[in-house]
Design a protein around this nucleic acid. Structure first.
Lengths: 350, 350
DNA sequence: TGAGCTTGCGCCATCGATGGTGCAAGGCAA
DNA sequence: TTGCCTTGCACCATCGATGGCGCAAGCTCA
């Protein structure tokens, strides 16, 4: 077929030529099906040695075109700049490779259009599976995937058109809020109007569940919830900063305890405190829904919710391996609360 | 060709059938070359509307097989769990997409074998370009890429067989060391035997340059460098922990200033301090080669080297866009030193 | 010794998109 | 009315790997 290397890439035809064999024989040897095709061991060895000598590399584009499968598994994820999501991406890649799959991760900035466009591109490359992590509109993505017959699994945020693995956001938020209330008590400070919630999107499942946990914890403690102390302003840093600016401009005294919904928002909160000479970080008890090893140093009074990335990804691949998950499955994984300044806050591996 | 959808994926043949046109006409319309192929506007519009109605999605495997290019640009990177690398990955994806390229990022855990295997897989998928970030053996990877005629660019760590964009590690380390010495002076503490270097790999370019900067700063300040206070034990957390354990077991008093080579190692150092009741984090001035927004809270005396990810990726894509970079090019980008507890330490965006 | 089985391999269509080439119909000028 | 050019499209080989099918040679057993 070719006179050996046109563009530097060796094909099975080049090898066939050198080995005086047919391309299909070479192909069978290269993809490991040669035994079932009754190629003699002698021939297989010869071909293998020629192939490695010539530096053959299977063209996965061609292979994928002919077979049904690309062995690529795609994942979209909001960002890498957060310990929670970066751990998910790392473990996902590791586990995918352990199964002979090629991971294709792409971060989509919590932007619904970018999410859709990215998934469409992944489908265009004919990925075998898609994992949607923290997708803003999981159902739209599930619909896209269905059209292509590609199974999709939701992670972190649930969808109604596909199976989902998420944290128990309600319980985590409930416990975190109780922890903050208990800190206020320990500091001999009033609970009333002294606990602020910042960050997250009000219409998103995780945030609304966390808000529910926050509210119920307050209610169960007999503390009134002040509507203007619930700032679901979005996750972005600058949104948290703006929200705090507005709150303080409104004349509110800054509460002595703050529930921050994600490390992303926490960055904004920290920046805001540093920018305000009239505010002291050490006067505040922080609770953050998400964990970061260094955020445990913000002050001596930080609580963090650590979502169980290891268990979540284990379940994810369990589902992927078995493939027989129902569309309606939603699995909630318990997060754990860690106290900053505690050893265990630093000890958990990811 | 097909009786419309075998597996749910619409092809140009299906559309051709419905539009009563040839597949090549449909193909030309779908990939935008229809004007040069003199397809009438009427036909093009009809085909486009049918295509969107049928939910056509171009099969990139087939397209890539036929054309030379896949429009995929690969990147390997050591990890995502570090602000420096995660920022690089995020910006890389963003810039790649802005150019119509599909980014394929994969983290390879500073494991040479995994790096090679991953690059081979990427080459197997016929990526158009590869960016090697922090590769442990950039030249081996460059050799692989050369064989396939795929251009490779090194980022963060330089290689001799391809162009490289790196930080000015020497200068950053020199300045950081001077900063630490100045902190010791400000604290009225002796400089002699009071400054420790932890983390990194001695044979790796970045670490050796940083060590050189560290040593020269000591020398220029007239301070003797104690060999056992130079612990290039690797980057991993547990390696830093072990190194500190050994140091303290040797009877050395813990120095009052520590140069930590990466946030990864810094995590280990922090864990070590938390695990030791006889050590107080607040007695130590920290300098970290790398930046993390929350690490600035470790104590009130932290200096961080912030590598200029924005400029580095800008140059990277400048090179990619122009493509005429010499193999010997090594571009050094200046990092900046930020003081923790300063506002600017929180203000720089990535 | 011939029917039937096993071994070992080659032939060829196929996956979907692409682009070179060919060709008919219509237009226009001489 | 002939020759030539433009317009608008279809035909078909091709990219590389894959696997169903066929077939010849050797082997076995009645």
């Amino acid at each position: 077929m070719s006179l050996e290397k046109k563009d530097g890439n060796v094909t099975i035809y080049d090898i066939a030529h050198r080995a005086e064999a047919s391309a299909s024989t070479v192909g069978a040897v290269m993809n490991g099906t040669w035994k079932s095709r009754r190629i003699s061991e002698k021939r297989a060895e010869l071909i293998l040695s020629i192939a490695s000598e010539m530096g053959y590399s299977r063209n996965m584009q061609a292979s994928a075109l002919r077979r049904e499968r690309t062995h690529i598994i795609g994942m979209i994820i909001p960002m890498y700049n957060s310990r929670y999501f970066s751990s998910i991406a790392q473990r996902f890649e590791h586990e995918a490779r352990a199964r002979g799959l090629f991971p294709m991760v792409s971060c989509t900035s919590r932007d619904p259009e970018l999410e859709q466009a990215t998934v469409e591109q992944m489908l265009s490359y004919r990925v075998d599976q898609i994992v949607c992590t923290g997708a803003t509109d999981p159902d739209a993505i599930a619909t896209l995937c269905e059209k292509h017959g590609v199974p999709a699994i939701n992670l972190d945020l649930p969808g109604s058109r596909g199976p989902s693995i998420i944290s128990d956001n309600y319980q985590g938020a409930y416990d975190l809020t109780r922890g903050l209330l208990s800190r206020l008590r320990a500091r001999d400070l009033p609970s009333e109007a002294n606990l602020l919630f910042v960050g997250g999107r009000p219409k998103e499942h995780n945030t609304s569940e966390r808000v529910r946990g926050f509210r119920n914890a307050l209610k169960d403690a007999g503390v009134a919830q002040e509507p203007d102390l619930l700032l679901t302003c979005g996750y972005a840093r600058h949104k948290a900063i703006n929200a705090l600016d507005e709150l303080s401009a409104s004349g509110r005294r800054m509460p002595a305890a703050i529930f921050v919904n994600s490390t992303e928002s926490l960055e904004g909160v920290m920046r805001w405190f540093r920018s305000r000479a009239d505010q002291n970080i050490n006067d505040v008890s922080f609770g953050c829904f998400d964990w970061d090893p260094f955020a445990t140093f913000i002050n001596s009074d930080v609580l963090m919710v650590r979502q169980n990335v290891v268990e979540m990804t284990d379940i994810l691949f369990n589902w992927i391996d078995n493939g027989n998950v129902k569309h309606t499955d939603v699995l909630e994984v318990q997060p754990t609360i860690v106290k900053a300044a505690s050893l265990e806050a630093m000890m958990i591996e990811d």
